[in-house]
């Protein structure tokens, strides 16, 4: 198991480490539920410790018309959290933290034939974000005056897997509520899990609205990837290793990069670097001939010698 996968595993276990439901029943209601977890992790999961930011965003939109003051307070806190996570981590959340991303990566290891999908399909997540996360919860309101959490209700596979199925096992009285909507969600979950075996990170690439939000911080966040042409030997290894099938270096900091750092680790000449955008790094970069550059030059020279010899 790679170091990154091990970290993903540890985070997934920690985020879902409430076993009190075995004694008391129900879900966790402690202080950590005041905080948003950076990744997609359903708060109705009996094991979950924190709140899912995507679910809360829909609740904000759904409450905005009925209780605008309360919703705005929640929105301030949620947007502050999302901005903080985005600027600090960006899509590192997707590559290193998100439990659902980890699950998809593990499924892709199952040795079955793999498929490709057109790049245009990734536009679907824009529709889900604008439609199911933002617009529908705000526009349609029920008898109580509140809207519905449309993405969670009709689409989110994490909700079905982590909350729907386990809670139906643990709480038999909920089984009377099973209807067409639940069957649809189970079908969708099965499709996404099966699809993830054939196509790496199917949900992240095509459907995840949270990844879309964090993607905007790839160019603005604390850490960015940088390509140094002078070191590159154009071997194409970085593109081969990219799970998101990006064109490197063109798309190093695009919305789609999940910051797995496979490209950086695969590069034989270390021509891709993770740079902090804080001041100290910028000053070091301005030095005329840094230690890093000297190291790159030595490596490049040894590569040249090997290829000519």
């Amino acid at each position: 198991m790679k170091k990154r996968n091990f970290i993903q595993f540890l985070v997934a276990v920690w985020a879902n480490s409430y076993f009190g439901f075995l004694i008391r029943g129900g879900i966790y209601t402690g202080k950590l539920k005041n905080l948003c977890f950076p990744g997609l992790n359903c708060y109705s999961c009996p094991l979950a410790l924190m709140a899912c930011p995507l679910g809360i965003l829909q609740h904000v939109m759904a409450t905005l018309r009925a209780l605008p003051v309360v919703a705005v307070k929640g929105a301030l806190y949620l947007l502050g959290s999302l901005l903080f996570y985005g600027l600090l981590l960006g899509r590192f959340v997707c590559g290193w933290i998100c439990p659902f991303g980890f699950l998809q990566e593990m499924l892709y290891r199952i040795p079955l034939p793999k498929i490709g999908l057109p790049r245009r399909a990734r536009l679907l997540k824009w529709g889900l974000f604008l439609g199911l996360v933002l617009a529908l919860p705000f526009i349609f309101k029920g008898e109580t005056g509140y809207g519905e959490v449309w993405f969670c209700r009709t689409f989110c596979p994490a909700g079905t897997l982590e909350a729907g199925l386990p809670n139906l096992v643990l709480e038999p009285q909920l089984r009377s509520l099973i209807g067409l909507l639940f069957y649809w969600k189970v079908l969708l979950l099965a499709g996404i899990l099966l699809g993830s075996i054939l196509y790496l990170r199917l949900f992240c690439k095509l459907f995840c609205p949270l990844g879309l939000i964090y993607g905007f911080f790839n160019r603005l966040g604390l850490f960015r990837l940088r390509w140094q042409e002078k070191n590159c030997i154009f071997c194409g290894l970085c593109e081969k290793m990219c799970p998101m099938e990006l064109e490197i270096p063109k798309e190093l900091n695009s919305l789609e990069c999940i910051r797995c750092l496979n490209c950086l680790n695969a590069c034989p000449t270390k021509s891709i670097e993770l740079k902090g955008s804080f001041r100290l790094e910028t000053r070091l970069d301005r030095l005329p001939f840094s230690v890093a550059e000297r190291r790159h030059a030595t490596r490049r020279e040894s590569l040249r010698r090997n290829s000519s010899g």
Binding site: G26, I27, Y28, T29, K33, N34, L35, C36, C42, Y43, S44, M50, A51, C52, G55, I56, H59, V60, T63, V70, A71, K73, G74, A75, L76, Y77, L78, L79, G80, S81, L83, F84, E148, V149, C152, R153, T154, C156, G159, T160, A163, G164, N167, L168, L174, L177, I178, G179, L181, F182, W184, K185, V186
Partner: peptide, 30 residues
Amino acid sequence: ILLLAGVLSGGFRFVFSRAANLCLSCMGLQ
């Protein structure tokens, strides 16, 4: 600023009130 305003105005209570209750919609049961 948003985080501070969110904390001071009690925005975390909104998060808690949603996240600490079983969400039937999230499970596709409602």
